[in-house]
Design a protein around this nucleic acid. Structure first.
Lengths: 160, 160
DNA sequence: CCTGATTTCCCATGATATCCCATATCTGTC
DNA sequence: GACAGATATGGGATATCATGGGAAATCAGG
């Protein structure tokens, strides 16, 4: 699981080091998959491992071929998602392309935010305002997981 | 998987360079298969590897012989699809024939869009308007793959 | 058979991506 | 606190890719 938040920085050659903890999650794969978030409320990049993209592709391929939403997801996800191979001798770095940087307003300092099955890459400025909003909303949402946990406790513990 | 979007250009001899990343997906095969899209809402070319065309042929051959849709797919796909061999010393280029260029309104600058098991080739002009629409709709369709992932997570963990 | 058009093969070049190495910094263990 | 290993960072060398152009082979028509 991609967890926690890490600082990193984009250098003069557009290289950025993926946090070692995230690289461990990738299980030794020598590349990572990153795409501009298609959630319109977020101006950040999203990333994950090969399995995640394969799962997305499978999910998309199960939709009806002529469904406009299928096509939208194909283009918005697969058509934008790019495989980045780690710098062979440079310790877990990838080269962030110009259009990716521009999309997320990234110039130098960035935050990697682990979200479980994937992570996000934010400019520090946008991350601050976003995180402020999220913390407020998280405090108001605790009851959701309490409810979720009690439901799972009733059914999950019994069945396993 | 064919992923991401790449710029390319058709030159004065109708040659266009297939992006190196896509050529890697083809696994070293020295040709690629391209056809005019049979989806009436798209004016673009589609492409893929040999396996894809073989799979399409198999899928089509499973339809009932007298089924008009089978014949439509045969003509629209197999009857239009052409095998393009890469320029032997010219770095992954193919020669795009006149009728293919005309179908997709391609003159010079093009976009290769990876969609997982296949890719599309668009004129830059048509791609822009199409991509604009897709990005909007994609953001509203995220719940489709989130639902899929949560279902797979529930059953995947249990079975593994 | 000849000629012109078309297709395929081949080569060179500049820009960019990838590879590689060294150093600085951080983290965990004793 | 000292030390070793892991990680992050900076810079340069090399390989790859995309592009343009010409030569040679093949095809089509008279």
């Amino acid at each position: 699981m991609f967890l926690s938040t890490y600082d990193s920085k984009v250098d003069g050659k557009s290289r950025v080091s993926v946090p070692a903890a995230f690289r461990k999650v990738l299980g030794g794969d020598d590349s990572v998959f990153i795409w501009p978030s298609i959630d319109k409320t977020k101006r950040c990049l999203e990333g994950g491992g090969r399995d995640l993209i394969v799962n997305y592709q499978k999910a998309i391929s199960r939709l009806k071929p002529m469904d406009p939403r299928r096509r939208a997801l194909e283009y918005g996800l697969l058509g934008q998602c790019k495989e980045f191979t780690f710098d062979a001798g440079g310790g877990g770095r990838i080269v962030l392309h110009k259009d990716f940087k521009e999309f997320a307003d990234i110039t130098d300092d960035v935050k990697f935010v682990g979200l479980g099955d994937r992570f996000e890459i934010w400019s520090v400025k946008d991350h601050e305002s976003m995180a402020r909003d999220m913390v407020d909303l998280a405090g108001e949402s605790l009851d959701l997981i309490d409810t979720f946990n009690s439901v799972m406790h009733d059914f999950g513990e019994v069945s396993s």
